[in-house]
């Protein structure tokens, strides 16, 4: 069963400020959902090993880039804060 501190730790990892009054209901809901999805654990370890899919490269060759700066203005215009050619954030050091 999840503890309230688990919810707090997960929220911190996910960069979510969860209102205090919501934590307990969230804990209960997540617990009940985990109880349901835990069904999949009925599968044995062998099946997991055998069935995990194959891996192939899906990336194209890195060639024919677009002109540098072609989209800069459009994209910057969507940022909440920017200055010159940069996205602006609060001081981190």
């Amino acid at each position: 069963m999840l503890k309230l501190t688990d919810i707090e730790n997960l929220a911190a990892l996910a960069r979510l400020d969860i209102p205090a009054e919501e934590k307990e209901s969230l804990r209960k809901e997540i617990d009940s959902i985990l109880g349901y999805v835990g069904e999949v654990q009925k599968l044995s370890g062998d099946v997991v090993k055998k069935e995990a899919g194959d891996i192939k490269n899906v990336f194209r060759e890195d060639m024919n880039p677009h002109l540098s700066g072609e989209f800069t203005e459009d994209l910057l215009a969507e940022a909440p804060r920017w200055q010159d050619n940069y996205i602006k954030v609060k001081k981190i050091l």
């Binding site: 835990g38 999949v40 654990q41 599968l43 099946v47 997991v48 069935e51 995990a52 899919g53």
Partner: peptide, 14 residues
């Protein structure tokens, strides 16, 4: 990870 995501991906291929 193994108990949930790993199993879920396996179920998916089944």
């Amino acid at each position: 990870y193994d108990a949930y995501y790993g199993k879920a991906v396996a179920v998916r291929s089944l």
